[in-house]
Structure formats: C-alpha cells, structure tokens
C-alpha cells in the first residue's frame, strides 16, 4: 500500500513533463532529486516509461547514458572530486586518496553509515581555486588535507 502511494505521488510529480517537448530528462531529474538516496530505482524508470509511453529499455538507455543519474542508491551527501587537468596538476589525486582513507570507500562507493558517496567528476569550472570538489550543490576550492575534515564536518 505504501509503495502504491509513493508511486502515485511520483506520478503526480512527473505528469507535468509529459506534455513538455523533451520533458523526459526533466522527469528523471525530478525523480532523482526527490529520492532520499539520490538515485533512480527500477520502479522509477518503469513509471517514466509508462507515463511517457516509451519502452522501458529506452528510459534505461537514457538514464544510464548520463553520468549524473545513478541507478543504485547513494549516500545522504554526494562528494564529487574534480579530476580534470587543472585540478589534477595541483594534487586532486592526493585529495581523493585522503578522502578514500578517511571515509574508507573507493570512488562509486557509499560509506557504511550511508552518509557519503564518493565520486569523481569532470571539470567543475572553478579551476582558479583548484583543487576543488562539490558536496551536493556546494563547491569547495583550494583544498588541502587539513581543510577536508572541516568540510566533511559540515555535512551530517
């Protein structure tokens, strides 16, 4: 019963996008943003296929094409470490290593307490303050080993 209710509120959420040209990506964005575990569950993709009247395979194909959609559950906060050249040359890999050690996860994995998912990202466009990362929608730059702990502490 609970599942059916959830399904109905998600249906309401994506219905406005059906009549919008190209609204499928918007629907995927909306569903993922509303998901507490920041991901698109198989039931979400099935719902999109049904509401938009397109094959489920096509929805999966679209969702998995884009790197910011996840089809597996993620932590409460998503850390994206920029690994592009300007960050790389000023020590992005060291930052990533410190995070891997501190959180005891590899990129793509979620901490045991479900607090963080660690990911690597393409250029975040804040190269003037490299190395940089994003936690959720916040950008943090001029990273050092010492600053990382303070940054992580901001996210419960």
């Amino acid at each position: 019963m609970a599942e059916r209710q959830a399904n109905s509120s998600q249906r309401q959420m994506i219905l406005p996008f059906v009549d919008q040209p190209g609204g499928l990506l918007k629907a995927l964005h909306a569903l993922q943003n509303a998901s507490p575990a920041h991901f698109l569950a198989p039931s979400d993709l099935k719902l999109v296929a049904e509401v938009f009247g397109v094959p489920e395979a096509k929805v999966w194909g679209t969702a998995t094409f884009y790197s910011l959609y996840s089809t597996s559950p993620r932590g409460r906060h998503i850390i994206r470490v920029c690994e592009s050249a300007p960050c790389y040359v000023v020590g992005a890999m060291d930052i990533l290593k410190v995070l891997e050690e501190t959180l005891d996860v590899k990129p793509g994995e979620t901490t045991g307490d479900g607090r963080f998912t660690l990911e690597v990202a393409s250029c975040l466009g804040v190269c003037g303050v490299a190395p940089a990362l994003m936690v959720d929608l916040d950008v943090h730059g001029n990273l050092t080993r010492d600053r990382l702990n303070a940054i992580l502490a901001e996210y419960a």
Binding site: P21, K26, T62, Y66, L68
Partner: peptide, 22 residues
C-alpha cells in the same frame, strides 16, 4: 534545460538530442 553530466553534449547535435530528452 539542465544537463545531466555528459561531456559530449557540448557538441551541437548531441546537445540538441539532449534537449529533446534523448
């Protein structure tokens, strides 16, 4: 229209496909 993390979408025909929801 907000992208979803695909470098190739900077290319114009790929960008158009993405706006079209594909």
């Amino acid at each position: 229209r907000v992208g979803a993390g695909a470098f190739v979408c900077g290319e114009e025909t790929a960008l158009i496909a993405s706006i079209e929801g594909r």
